[in-house]
Design a protein around this nucleic acid. Structure first.
Lengths: 202, 202
DNA sequence: GTCTATATAGAGATAGAC
DNA sequence: GTCTATCTCTATATAGAC
């Protein structure tokens, strides 16, 4: 997977495309660290080595810029989780798959890059139109996790009467909150994964 | 506990104090539903039946107003959780206490009122100076939960090697996220409590 | 105490020179 | 493609009349 969205048919990207990429990189970094409201276009432009007005050659609006970051980030996380689970092979137990998925999701948030982090963190802060359009991607991601949890439940790792929708949302809330933890709680994603699974009694 | 902060020595509050209370009520409601950035003083003033400029007779700044809502809200949640746990009496098991605490925290978020909801939700969105001053209150609340989790761990409800700091932060993340859940996942706080405890295998 | 009017600042966005 | 300059809008906050 490329480090950032690439033009559809651009075997050797033009300067325009590379600049556009720098803008997206800067936006992703600022969105991931400062949130939607606190990220202004002047800072994005400065981080990309240009002035605010110049951004509009590459993007129609702040919303369009943010949306592209979010869309790519969420898909990136999704792909990462799925590939990490599939890397285990078809013989992996539901417990092993669940652990791999949790660690991959946490890695997306903490170490995989700004796009993934922004994609998972900022959606709730973004304006309603953006949220609506992001919904399809998130639902597919949610469906994938639903399958993981179903297998875990069938294998007896989760209580048989546990509502899997609530379980998934609680799990996402727990994992996603970790980016806002105080410095005193900073741990490796392996440690986070182990603790979360232990909290679940798995 | 009163519905909102009352003047220190005001057995029969003056009109000024009652108006000030209306402003706080309006601010709490808007902060709880719209977040820090989207809550502007014009809307607060309108909801309190006045114009934006008039707010400055009662509060020095937006930050001062928000901070008073947050401080009261967090303390309110804290008091509610502690009183619900204590209501069980000294013979209650750690499992019963944990359930009562989780449900009380969720009730703070969902049904107890705007102050409590705002206090738990928007601290992370508030400007840094506010966050710093809120820290003492949150740490006391965290310490209280730490005690609950310690007893649960001693009683065998939680894995003996589980890091209780991470456990508490994951738990808070899970509970607090529930206010942002989609409408399709709306449940009673009893159902939420049952699901979260089931996810923990308790 | 609350009003109207306004100062001030910052944001997103546009226009036209280069 | 990027610049500078500027428009517009919204927000916090202030000043002075009532």
């Amino acid at each position: 997977m490329p480090a950032r969205p690439a033009a559809q048919n651009a075997p050797s990207p033009r300067k325009s495309q590379r600049t556009r990429g720098r803008v997206l990189d800067a936006a992703a970094r600022l969105l991931a660290s400062s949130g939607y409201a606190h990220t202004n276009l002047s800072d994005v432009a400065a981080a990309a080595g240009m002035k605010a007005g110049s951004l509009y050659y590459h993007f129609d609006s702040k919303e369009a810029l943010v949306e592209e970051v979010l869309r790519y980030g969420t898909m990136h996380s999704f792909e990462h989780v799925r590939s990490e689970v599939e890397r285990l092979g078809p013989t992996a137990s539901p417990a092993e798959q669940l652990r791999a998925a949790i660690q991959a999701h946490l890695d997306s948030l903490h170490t995989l890059g700004d796009y993934a982090s922004a994609g998972l963190r900022i959606v709730d802060q973004a304006p309603e139109p953006i949220r609506r359009r992001q919904y399809a991607i998130h639902r597919r991601y949610g469906d994938y996790w639903h399958g993981l949890l179903e297998r875990a439940q069938s294998a007896g790792l989760l209580a048989p009467d546990l509502d899997l929708l609530m379980a998934r949302l609680f799990l996402f809330g727990a994992m996603n909150s970790s980016v806002d933890w105080p410095a005193s709680a900073r741990r490796s994603t392996e440690d986070l994964t182990t603790a979360l699974l232990a909290l679940m009694g798995v």
